[in-house]
Design a protein around this nucleic acid. Sequence first.
RNA 1: GCGCCAGUAGCUCAAUCGGAUAGAGCAACGGCCUUCUAAGCCGUAGGUUAGUGGUUCGAGUCCACUCUGGCGUACCA
Length: 542
Amino acid sequence: MKEYLARLFEQLKNNLNYLEEVEISFNVPQNSVNGDYSTNVAMMLAKKLKRAPREIASEIVENLQIDKNILEKVEIAGAGFINFFFTPSFVAGITKTILEKGESFGRFDTYKGKKANVEFVSANPTGPLTVGHGRNAVLGDTIANLLEWIGYEVDREYYFNNAGRQMRVLGESVKARYLQLLGKEIDFKEEYYQGEYIIDIAKNLFEKHGDKLIDEPAEGIFKDEAEKEIFENIKNTLRKINIEFDTFFNEKSLYDSGKIDSVLKIFKEKKLSYEKDGATWLKLTELGQEQDKVIIKSTGEPTYRLPDIAYHSTKFERGYDLMVDIFGSDHMATYPDVLAGIEALGFDKNKVKVIIHQFVTIMENGEIIKMSTRKANFVTLDELIDEVGKDVVRYFFNMRSYSSHMNFDLTLAKKQSDENPVFYLQYAHARISSILRTVKDEGLQSSVENLELLNSESEQNLLKHLHRFPDEVFYAAVNYEPHKIANYLEQLAALFHKFYTECRIIGSEKKLAEARLALIIATQTVLKKGLSILGVSAPERM
RNA sequence: GCGCCAGUAGCUCAAUCGGAUAGAGCAACGGCCUUCUAAGCCGUAGGUUAGUGGUUCGAGUCCACUCUGGCGUACCA
């Protein structure tokens, strides 16, 4: 429909030159009395042309070469909107398009041949993933799905650091627990990781090695074993919600490959770094930032900035056209420095898109739980998945805009998981499957021969909404907004349920039944594909 | 103090980058199953979009200030 309108206006530009002046866009009005699509060009032009918007609108409408079989009427309304109403038979024809395109309906090859990298989760292996990581994980994976839908070849990447202070403390924590198991009196310091899982790791070590490890350094087998077990645990958790990474990128490799040194050298050559108080500083003030920052501490250890910059430069060198970083809002302050560093190295920082999502607040029994991995008062993602299931988790994190804070009432989620809107969507899908099963026994088959019979209000509304699916996918993808898909699907399910209540298939006149069957097959296709973008399953029965 | 994100129905959140009468779900109340799945449908009620000004044909959306909450503001990551 939109394409038709766009073509219509393209022709019109020959007659009305002033249309070249503005970008013509078509929107779906909130209220259907204002048409299927609407444009505000007349109002946009009013100021430039110094003419009344309604006058411009009527001039445009008079000059449109309208095909009466496609457009039923064109109206001028309100302050100067031009509203378009399509004919029911044209709308019904959409079914055919969807069935013909099938699985590829809604897919684009706009970015075919382009490579994208989506980096997400990237939690260091110091403990199990929390519910907070869950939002990051689901958001990242779904954005990756969306990018694939518009043609990108996507790599999912997990960046981690298994060196440094955090990991040292982790090793010490495990060793302390191990010594406690051997009956030693140990001061279990406050800075240690307090979680139960540390004890489990220590127990495993004890079972395998007895007391032989008593003189081993904390940074040796204790740290290594902890890292291994925790990483296994993290991967298992992610697998449960269908997330698989293509690459696990170890920060350490940046040192081994000499990447850190070479970046450092470039900064020195470009005179963007200097020594002060025994540390090496990066001249961020020359790169448009507020203040200079330390990249190598006086101890000789780099801060996170240097490896992060080096890491991102490898992404450019690996040939990505688009790099998406998914961070929680606690990383807010880090990325401008990194982007400035990248730019200083001569890379185009516009190819990096940073998505900062807001935090998840967990409520349990009316109380807010403050999360900290070290203090171990977190709720693990694993527990949540076991409690409410994969689909609920994926849907829940996908249904809200990433920029809004999220409240998760655990008590409610556990008790009332039936109320989750995800079931509403899945139910629509299962209902269609059920009809198809029943119809099969009756020997009825779908047909696109008499689609014009789909002219009732609920059929037409369903059809129009189905038609918007590709637009929604594209919009959601280029804006990195998975929640648009969730909203779209909820509306689609609502329109289907309404159709289901008002229009019967079995018992209807044969031609009508056949056309309606085609319609619900198209609906099911879109539901299924939409759910697959979100990573939610589409059950045949419920 | 400064920076970023937010503040919308009792609760959780939408609102197609400034569009028309601000919408869903949950919770509340009232209807609809001898016919394809009632995890559904229909209806009622619920709002000065935190506040005050401004910009214009038009503001929940943009600007300024104020209030409230979250996250930052490291030689932690």
